[in-house]
Design a binder for these strands. Structure first.
Length: 330
DNA sequence: TTGCCTTTGAAGACG
DNA sequence: CGTCTTCAAAGGCAA
């Protein structure tokens, strides 16, 4: 079963963390106790909402002003007021919640600290989670979004667009190109990414798990049923035995380690194009449509996303000896 | 100092 | 409507 790491989850607001419970994940971020509500019905306090951060983007210390009172101002004034507006962050999605919670645990068990590597581990662990376990996080994320929308009724994700000075477009284009090139090159890795696409980790069992006699300790012990329901989990283990446990992130070594998932691409292509393989969808560690969800999960609003985009198809590690990989997702 | 890396999911933008 | 893009977290690393 799933359990929270004892103190492993680094609460962003320790003073306000109630206890190590799943619910605290949500309440911690969007606890009304912390928020000067933008919503009349919500409790009030002077403590800023966690989603309001001193920005990546510069944030004026001036009092947050979300009031609609500011109207009919000159463009310059409006612009200034916009700059004064607190940076309300996006609510965390299910995976982000999972990452937040599990990161400390993974970091503790690994010697790794690089988030990129940790995130790869977490991504794999996420896939290895049973649907029931994932459902918890989808539900949490749903609650977060709901609470967020209550706290900031007028907030839109659009508000944060461009707030990060990123050049992701270029990066993602490169990734798309890389994927396409990999497909076209039939396994030959031809990456045009600005930086080489790095596989930080061996496909599975990313850390030395000393006390693990039957698999990585990091792997949340997905229930047997989950393992059955999730072909990706067993499939992902193939290379965990085959790959050395080098976790270096040095480019040179990364390049050598970047041997992992042209198989992803073919699997993704198959998954997205065929939609189903025979009677059994190949990828079940992804949330399934409601119809296939356990009855218990259906008692609450949909915990799993109803749709599965092609680019979100689960990267399945196929039983291939070695595969070239650029990036396993997107 | 700043952005990238890396992950998944949600949502906005766009054709 | 389907696809693409951006942003959420996080900390090391490179420029």
């Amino acid at each position: 079963m799933y359990s929270l790491p004892p103190g492993g989850f680094r609460h962003p607001y320790p003073a306000l963390a109630m206890n190590a419970s799943m619910s605290s994940l949500v309440s911690s971020r969007f606890s009304p106790h912390m928020v000067a509500p933008a919503h009349p019905g919500l409790p009030t306090s002077g403590i800023p909402h966690p989603a309001i951060v001193s920005p990546i983007v510069k944030q004026e210390p001036a009092a947050p002003r979300l009031s609609p009172a500011a109207s009919a101002k000159s463009p310059v004034t409006v612009k200034k007021e916009e700059e004064k507006k607190p940076h309300v962050k996006k609510p965390l999605n299910a995976f982000m919640l999972y990452m937040k919670e599990m990161r400390a645990k993974v970091v503790a068990e690994c010697t790794l600290k690089e988030s990129a590597a940790i995130n790869q581990i977490l991504g794999r662990k996420w896939h290895n989670l049973s649907r029931e376990e994932q459902a918890k996080y989808y539900e949490l994320a749903r609650k977060e979004r709901h609470l967020h929308s209550q706290l900031y009724p007028t907030w839109s994700a659009r508000d944060n667009y461009g707030k990060k000075k990123k050049r992701k477009r270029e990066k993602q284009l490169s990734q798309a190109q890389s994927q396409q090139q990999v497909q076209e090159a039939d396994g030959a890795l031809v990456s045009k990414s600005k930086k080489p696409c790095i596989q930080y980790l061996p496909p599975e069992k990313p850390c030395d798990s000393p006390a693990s006699s039957h698999g990585s300790m990091l792997d949340s012990p997905a229930t047997p049923s989950a393992a059955l329901a999730s072909p990706a989990a067993p499939a992902a283990t193939h290379s965990e035995q085959a790959q050395p446990l080098s976790l270096t992130t040095k480019p040179e070594t990364r390049a050598q380690l970047a041997l992992h998932s042209a198989a992803f691409l073919s699997a993704k292509a198959a998954a997205s194009s065929s939609g189903q393989m025979g009677s059994q969808p190949p990828l079940l560690s992804r949330p399934l449509p409601l119809g296939s969800m356990p009855a218990a999960l259906l008692t609450s609003p949909p915990s799993f996303p109803a749709t599965l985009h092609a680019h979100q198809a689960l990267p399945v590690l196929q039983a291939q000896p070695l595969s070239l990989v650029t990036k396993s997702a997107h």
